[in-house]
């Protein structure tokens, strides 16, 4: 049984206006996304069904949060910090280098096996600037060569 199924079972017997239903919306989105990589329209409908909220309410939350993805993502996600400390140490050049290397704009997918590269607000890795999160793991300090090596590895590994 997946996390979302467990959640559905937990919420099933609660009254429609029970606060636990709304509270479960973000955990449900993150849980489903961890299985599918992003939330398509069917996923939004599914979460609406599980929580008892309207699909509009779920969509409103999904589009507010920066870590909920409504477009397809690659097998790997690289978030490159573009906030002040990383920017001072060349984050902007790293973002450009990533676009050039992958041949796709940030957030875009050049091929099926390409990683998704996204700009991010401060990742709390200012001591590793310029830094990135690679599938949630900290990486840094990066330079162009290290980044390209990393992207190449992510493109080729299973």
């Amino acid at each position: 049984m997946t996390d979302i199924d467990t959640l559905q079972k937990d919420l099933a017997n609660l009254p429609p206006d029970h606060p636990d239903r709304r509270e479960a919306a973000v955990p449900a989105m993150l849980s489903l996304q961890s299985e599918t990589g992003y939330l398509d329209d069917a996923a939004i409908e599914k979460i609406a069904e599980v929580t008892g909220l309207s699909s509009t309410e779920i969509e409103e939350l999904a589009t507010f949060y920066s870590l909920i993805y409504r477009c397809p993502t690659g097998r790997h996600i690289v978030q490159i910090c573009d906030s002040v400390c990383c920017s001072m140490r060349g984050a902007d050049q790293l973002l450009t280098a990533a676009e050039n290397y992958l041949g796709a704009p940030l957030g875009g997918l050049a091929s099926e096996c390409a990683p998704t590269v996204l700009p991010s607000i401060c990742l709390g890795l200012c001591d590793k600037a310029p830094a990135a999160l690679v599938d949630g793991e900290a990486a840094g300090p990066l330079n162009r060569t290290l980044l390209e090596t990393l992207l190449k590895r992510l493109q080729t590994e299973e």
Binding site: P19, R21, R22, E23, A24, A25, V26, P27, M29, L30, T51, L53, E60, L61, F64, Y65, S66, L67, I68, I121
Partner: peptide
């Protein structure tokens, strides 16, 4: 543990309360 979906504003006390309740933060 409430794992956030992101966004700086969720660090603001009352936005965080809305976020935990599952409302737009």
């Amino acid at each position: 543990v409430h794992l956030s979906g992101g966004r700086y504003i969720c660090g603001e006390e009352t936005a965080q309360i809305n976020a935990i309740e599952g409302k737009r933060p």
